[in-house]
């Protein structure tokens, strides 16, 4: 179950009811959230309070270009870019990428999947390093 201080998904651009966005933060790479068509795709993680974050590890499949924005308020406006990364294609197995956020403080992180190696991409786990 949720780590009480860990982030929760508060928004996702796609939803298959059998693969809800909550699967991103359940700590299990067997469960996943899947996009249901077109790019960009995004989801937002919210922390209970402003939190210093060293980086995040994203376990995914067929994600090509990922951008991360952050904000430091409870409102979902005024995001600013903090990091972006081009993932390698890993056919037949999950991608696992660490993205440094340099200890930035954030209340919300927005993950924007700008492009993919396929029409549909999945995110299995986002783990946060504090």
């Amino acid at each position: 179950m949720f780590d009480s201080v860990g982030p929760h998904v508060v928004m996702a651009a796609s939803s298959d009811e059998n693969h809800p966005p909550e699967n991103i933060t359940d700590g299990n790479t067997k469960t996943f959230w899947i996009s249901t068509g077109m790019f960009p795709q995004e989801f937002v993680l919210r922390f209970a309070e402003p939190t210093q974050i060293s980086g995040v590890t994203v376990d995914s499949y067929n994600v090509k270009h990922l951008k991360i924005d952050k904000n430091t308020t409870q409102q979902a406006s005024q995001f600013e870019p903090v990091a972006e990364k081009e993932f390698e294609c890993t056919e037949g197995q999950l991608q696992s990428n660490y993205i440094s956020l340099n200890g930035s403080s954030a209340t919300q992180l927005r993950f924007i999947i700008a492009s993919g190696y396929d029409h549909f991409v999945s995110v299995h786990r986002v783990s946060v390093k504090y």
Partner: peptide
Amino acid sequence: FHSLYQQRRDTIQNLGPA
């Protein structure tokens, strides 16, 4: 497009770990 989605979803369900 729907068939493609189902195929891809099945593939993802059976993926090995990183």
